[in-house]
Design a protein around this nucleic acid. Sequence first.
DNA 1: TATGTTTATGCAGCAGTGTTGCGTAAATAA
DNA 2: TTATTTACGCAACACTGCTGCATAAACATA
Lengths: 142, 142
Amino acid sequence: MSNKTKASITDMLRASNLSITDTRVKILELFIDSNGALEHSSFEKLAGHSFDRVTVYRTLQTFLDKGIIHSIPTTDTSIRYALCKSDCSEHDHHDHHIHFKCEECGNTICLDETTVPEIQLPKGYAAHNIDVVVSGVCKECK
Amino acid sequence: MSNKTKASITDMLRASNLSITDTRVKILELFIDSNGALEHSSFEKLAGHSFDRVTVYRTLQTFLDKGIIHSIPTTDTSIRYALCKSDCSEHDHHDHHIHFKCEECGNTICLDETTVPEIQLPKGYAAHNIDVVVSGVCKECK
DNA sequence: TATGTTTATGCAGCAGTGTTGCGTAAATAA
DNA sequence: TTATTTACGCAACACTGCTGCATAAACATA
């Protein structure tokens, strides 16, 4: 990872009023490198057990609270997270893109260009957030 | 629950080549009565600990395999299940409706009348299934 | 650069969730 | 009614996520 990216990571943390620690920098690096969604166990594997499990949980929770990452619904018991785009903040959080889970490689990625369509709910329902998860085969595995 | 519904439950099981057992009948009753999505812990509560945990897990897995129920993505660690409509089968499974999770009462329901809109994926991606989960406030809690 | 304060980390331990193996009990087929 | 197949219940285990507390690191201030 280039120094330039490392510098932007510290900027990200500072912008959210978070102190710069090894764990936080490393986890953000993993998110940037992976270019997709990661679950908790991925960090333990990718970071080579250099961090305590609890630290990873707390770091992810902190990032969630600050709007740095968002969670992605799954039909299994793990929770997946991905980096938010720059237009998300602590108090105005939104995912306007859809998620794609590849059945071949198992990766989940954010399709940032693809917007969530309008959905007409029955009378009496108020929507705050819409999650769309498409499963299938990605362009790498095709 | 009426005898008529009980009869249709045994028909459902027979149609999927499943033997009729107390556990399976009771779990299907709970699905029908709840009219929404249930997670594993719900069965233990609703059924009053009359079944072993393992039996409930295995029963749900069997129903999933046979296309009797489907799983609903969540951003927590529990897996939610709901009854499939009659046009699902073991080999042709599909959810063409959207799911609504109420932030007030916590219930997740299937909006069967509301269809999933067309989604234009980037080139190279093939979609097999689309899950849409809308969160907000349901008409009961409004 | 040194120092005090705040914040994050690591460890131990706990609770909840889901799985596997195996002997027994129940359901179906004959 | 009996034989065979299938499901159930128990014990034990692995994995995931959380809390409390002592220690270590990061930051702000001088």
